[in-house]
Design a protein around this nucleic acid. Structure first.
Lengths: 343, 343
DNA sequence: ACTGTCTTTGCACACGTTTGCGAAGATGCG
DNA sequence: CGCATCTTCGCAAACGTGTGCAAAGACAGT
């Protein structure tokens, strides 16, 4: 009646019922060829009707393989992160792995605590997404020898495997798209100074200009903050130039959102007067006014690739240390040829 | 050099170094009062410098407590879900629990497989968010006696604990807000027929009308699909009425998004000609044109409450079977008094 | 009938930890 | 000094499963 702890049926219980040894039961449940079909089926039916559920922890203890991995994220609320985790979980689950999830909230001490916990749980691998504290993993990694894969890490050291987006190529695609539309004065609103992804996107922008024999104009590059406010301020700065740009490439969609809002406030038509383009293809990008041209990161794919890479590491293969995935330009309605009188 | 599997140092290794028994080491690491301070400190320092990491699985095997819980979600990519999970993970982690995450993709067979996996992993509890297959858990629940908490489940059976949003109250708040602004013809664009949350929101809407002595007009209630398209079609239907409503209450923000889009297409001003209001307070709600008045669900709080409830169940307490959390009206710029000539 | 091979099963140990119990030593009290 | 109590530690069992090895039985070949 009131049994607070209900002991699940074990392999020994079944052995007793079937009148065999526990090792026979273990083998029968694994369809070992060492057991005759008759007794195997008999044991399996007993197991089924007694509601047997094998203990993964006992198995893990003896096999030394837990079939679990840990993923640590800054915040699962971040839409980018949750999509990546979606891909990781899917791939992991399809390969018999369960995943531990932990938020770090970008706090280093919490991050170490989480990794320590994963270590005690004997996860076979770890994937870290969007963390800025990559260096922190070096001692832990070498000490406990757990394979680690980073995805879109801000400071990917050479010592770990990682999958990351091809920022340079994606950014060049954006710029080329604008150039082909006829734009010649193209601005860039970046993130805060020093972020690797921001620098890479700036690089792509400059390379594309150079290839098209267009001049690089330092005044057309301003810094935002990766958020809405930065986009608004960035636009304000660009509009105060003696000659405004005809197109604005924003570091990410949030920045573009701010840019759109500020342009709307100023009664400047998009894309009639100025074209705007973002990066990330957040859910919101297709619902702005006008729908935003942007660059899509294959987030779920990146998660799957990270997990695939991790499984290779676990099985002992030396997989490629870094995987670079292509970004995809998504053309919507916020970009158009420049007004003729402004060209 | 090439040791593919690196055995972590165990309690026995430390015992050998410290020249004591393994049980002494175990107690020393737990700061047991059975061990003298001197030897305890000696052992702890040895453990630290040898990089010892206790095996949670071995511990779990003997203590019969894994300190893990499982959370199964339809999709972690859903912003509602990811916020709830954020709250769950935070509360769980603060109480020493690790969480397994698994997507069900709303596929029943995958859901059972996942729960089976959790069972084998000997999780101490399970929380399920936004699932429609609640009934599926009854046999599993009774069979393996694992505490389960549901959050915002579509069919919360009486047999499980659950935390859910107060749809009726939130919906009544919305309707009252519109009534106080002076609206008398208020429309409702619902979800597909038969969903519990939709029916509850409709109930709140009707109750508020009744309390204000306003008539309930069946033509003003149309069905959407919980998505953007449903909102667009719903608006179209409402505009074809002989007398259009002056305000539209949408089942959720996505529906409201569609409504805004369609109204914009028809050159109908919001909130000048028609007020629009949503439900959920998705991230996007503050970025629409105009920013959307809506109802906020305290998603992280719901996650924390679910985990708190689950921990009580695990410790044997009979916690309240259902927790109802209040929704909060967020007034932005998509609602205003009706045009005087339309009142 | 003897030997050898193949099939099927059980014994025993291992995985790494916790914990009840007993024992040894230290200490206190009369 | 005798005895009781307290402190500190080790022994051994247990958790539930997997697996090498031996053994028992079945069977075929000579």
């Amino acid at each position: 009646m009131n049994s607070p702890v209900h002991k699940p049926t074990s392999i020994k219980d079944i052995a007793r019922i079937a009148n065999v040894s526990s090792s026979t039961v273990s083998r029968a449940l694994h369809n070992s060829h060492l057991i005759s079909r008759r007794t195997a089926e008999r044991i399996q039916s007993i197991a089924k009707e007694s509601g047997y559920s094998a203990s993964a922890i006992a198995r893990g203890l003896v096999t030394q393989r837990t079939k679990t991995i840990g993923v640590v994220v800054t915040s699962i609320s971040d839409p980018f992160v949750s999509d990546v985790v979606n891909g990781i979980e899917e791939y992991a689950n399809d390969h018999g792995y369960s995943v531990f999830l932990a938020n770090s909230n970008a706090e280093p001490e919490r991050e170490t605590k989480v990794v320590q916990s994963f270590s005690e749980r004997r996860v076979e691998g770890i994937v870290v997404t969007s963390s800025r504290v990559g260096a922190l993993y070096r001692p832990l990694l070498s000490e406990m020898r757990i394979p680690i894969v980073l995805v879109n890490n801000q400071h990917p050291g050479e010592f770990v495997n990682s999958v990351l987006i091809d920022n340079v190529k994606g950014s060049a695609d954006v710029t080329n798209h604008l150039i082909q539309l006829g734009h010649r004065r193209i601005a860039y609103i970046g993130d805060r100074f020093g972020y690797q992804s921001d620098m890479e996107r700036l690089t792509g922008y400059r390379e594309a200009l150079e290839r098209a024999d267009l001049p690089f104009t330092p005044e057309l590059v301003v810094h935002g903050d990766g958020k809405c406010e930065g986009g608004m301020i960035g636009v304000e700065m660009l509009l105060s130039l003696p000659k405004s740009p005809t197109a604005i490439f924003c570091y990410n969609d949030m920045t573009a959102l701010g840019a759109l809002r500020q342009l709307n406030l100023k009664k400047i038509s998009v894309p009639g007067d100025i074209s705007v383009i973002g990066f990330d293809d957040l859910f919101i990008a297709s619902f702005t006014q006008p729908p935003l041209t942007t660059v899509r990161q294959p987030r779920r794919l990146m998660g799957r690739l990270a997990m695939e890479s991790l499984l290779k590491l676990i099985s002992g293969e030396d997989s490629a240390t870094t995987i670079k995935v292509p970004a995809e330009l998504i053309v919507r309605e916020s970009t158009a040829p420049p007004r003729e009188d402004l060209q």
